[in-house]
Write a protein that binds this DNA or RNA. Structure first.
Length: 255
DNA sequence: ATGGCTTATTGTATAAGA
């Protein structure tokens, strides 16, 4: 079972890139973030033609998450429990044997703002959601745009970036309890070297210079991680025509 | 110090992203 995540920065703008990638990589599940449209305008028919069902949580203009899957997603949850009108940043569903939780963590800029403290609070809420709804002995995958690089090897300049949103100590400290709940970073099961990133700024030729950060993740509970046979970041779409600023992140499981 | 790009919007500059 191949599970992937991709912040597409508008599904309307990225539909050709996403359909091409689905045909090429044939994931069983693709979690999308920043679809930037309401559910009614999500191009579900185009994905149905390729054999994918869609569960969508959208809103106008900003945010928006969706799960594409070859098997129909069931038991779909949109947003944190009891907050159906909040920002469209979390969607969860059962796909076959796996509970899939797809998140778009707030960016949090600028540093020190209400948005920054709100990001830290959102991560605390994510941990509380896992505590309330699930246990780490389930087959569960948490994937999405975490907007946090966990470790120094995940950013191109750890010293300089420690003072910038995405890699500040409080953000990393807020993400740690989510991992400590019982989740394994599948990418790091297979790759320990620095220099592997999932996001590069559109500006300053950041992709060509590989000035990136690894902020998109596929995290699995221990029983699911035990079945992980490979994980990687596909840089190719980032270098393509009219790209998202994020690359797809993929993990394969022997399920 | 700022902006550098990209996207969506009852748009033609602004907000947000990261």
């Amino acid at each position: 079972m191949r599970i992937a995540t991709w912040n597409v920065n508008s599904i309307a703008a990225r539909l050709p890139a996403v359909t091409a990638w689905l045909l090429e990589q044939q994931p069983d599940v693709l979690c999308l973030q920043e679809i930037k449209c309401v559910a009614e305008r999500f191009p579900a028919a185009a994905f149905a033609e390729l054999g994918y069902h869609a569960a969508v949580f959208g809103q106008p203009t900003y945010n928006g998450v969706a799960i594409l899957a070859r098997q129909p997603p069931v038991e779909v949850e949109r947003g944190f429990p009891g907050q159906p009108d909040g920002p469209a940043r979390l969607i969860a569903a059962a796909v076959g044997p796996v509970r899939v939780v797809d998140v778009y963590v707030p960016n949090g800029a600028p540093l020190g703002s209400d948005r920054y403290s709100g990001k830290l609070a959102w991560l605390a809420q994510l941990r509380a959601y896992l505590d309330a709804r699930h246990t780490p002995d389930e087959l569960l995958v948490l994937c999405g745009d975490f907007n946090v690089a966990p470790e120094p090897r995940d950013v191109y300049d750890p010293a300089a970036l420690a003072a910038q949103v995405l890699f500040t100590p409080p953000e990393r400290a807020a993400l740690a309890p989510v991992a400590a709940w019982g989740l394994v970073d599948t990418f790091r099961l297979h790759e320990s070297e620095p220099g592997h990133y999932s996001w590069w700024d559109y500006r300053q030729a950041a992709f060509r210079r590989n000035l990136g950060l690894r902020i998109d993740h596929v995290w699995a509970t221990p029983p699911l991680a035990a079945a992980c046979t490979g994980a990687w970041i596909d840089r190719a779409p980032r270098g393509g025509e009219r790209p998202s600023d994020h690359a797809p992140v993929v993990a394969d499981f022997a399920l």
